[in-house]
Design a protein around this nucleic acid. Sequence first.
DNA 1: AATAAAAGTGAGTAATCACTCACTTTTATT
DNA 2: AATAAAAGTGAGTGATTACTCACTTTTATT
Lengths: 214, 214
Amino acid sequence: MSEEEILLQQLFEEEKLTEKQKKIIVAAIESFSEKGYAATSTNEIAKKAGVAEGTIFRHYKTKKELLVSIVAPLMTKLIGPVIVNDFHKVLDRPYEHAEDFLRAAIEKRREIIKKMLPVIKIMIQEIPFQPELREQFLEQIARKTFDRILIVIKSYQDKGQLIEMPTLSAARLVISTIFGYLISRYIFFPESEWDDELETERTIQFIMHGLGKK
Amino acid sequence: MSEEEILLQQLFEEEKLTEKQKKIIVAAIESFSEKGYAATSTNEIAKKAGVAEGTIFRHYKTKKELLVSIVAPLMTKLIGPVIVNDFHKVLDRPYEHAEDFLRAAIEKRREIIKKMLPVIKIMIQEIPFQPELREQFLEQIARKTFDRILIVIKSYQDKGQLIEMPTLSAARLVISTIFGYLISRYIFFPESEWDDELETERTIQFIMHGLGKK
DNA sequence: AATAAAAGTGAGTAATCACTCACTTTTATT
DNA sequence: AATAAAAGTGAGTGATTACTCACTTTTATT
């Protein structure tokens, strides 16, 4: 199975898509992520997909509906691990040390981003301009991620593993550090050589102990 | 002087602009940052500025030239403090403690972002799609900022104030943390209530000592 | 095999796009 | 005050835009 087919299957698991519809989605993802949503014409998508322009509008009422049909499932997919993995593993069978939680959390996100990079780029680009996507992101992703991290941090604070900084600020700092790493790694400097295991450990070390000399 | 006039003067210091040209720039900044560059029409800019559409093209050959004429001066402005302030103050009359350097660096960036927010939004949005802007950003901003931070970190490592993590990784982590804070503060959750002084101190504390209990 | 429903087509459409140009008005130069 | 240059105008341009629709082809249902 090709890379595109894997991405499609990941995103549209149970949805029934015709062959031409799949080609439209693949073409749209490629063009949207390279040129941006507004700068991509439906004509261009149709040509790249090898279908008639009318076929696009047979499946999607508008160009925006095509965009949303691609980005919305991504967000659903993104929030999955937050609810399932982090929650249960930490609270039911918790990682004993905060370090182990961080390591698992970073690895999981790295894996997702690696697979879904073009769609994630589209999401990041269009969230500021599409209220529909913006709302779904804030309510579904940002809020829930934040809430989970709050709970997890509180639990490690109670265990005495973390300092007593307000959980809200601590959460912000942890999230900034992790996503700062992943965004540097995959968006800003994907061309640089990265020793992922090493950088992950340094990121964890930084979160736990900072840069100051003991 | 109105907010817009201050921003204009900051960005276009010595450049001679006619009154109508100023109105075009103000209108363009507003529309580009709200709807995005590609989704903004020159007709719309002209109407908002209260000028004829032809007037835009009297001053700018193309719509893209208008975009670049707004974002390029911002980048020049952004790199200023990196060369002047940080370099001289740290190396000639250095801040004795890394904390003091961080505090000054964060405050300076916060001040700039506060003033230039809409233009910064346009820059962030368009860098991925405009090779001209992308190159200027990587060469002028990213690279020089990184180089300076490397030097500064090295100097504090030599003073024994920082642990011996490779400066490259340390620089990445410091930059992620600072800009993670500023992006959360001004881009993601500008509506939330922020105690800026407190959050700045917590950010510094986090960089220096992490979250782990001593 | 007959029928209906769904998928696919591509020429066509009105609206909008960035940009031009002949012309007028304002400003600077002598 | 005369002249030239610069700034401003707005109707007009061909190209492109998202989207439609009457029609054909493919697939599913009986």
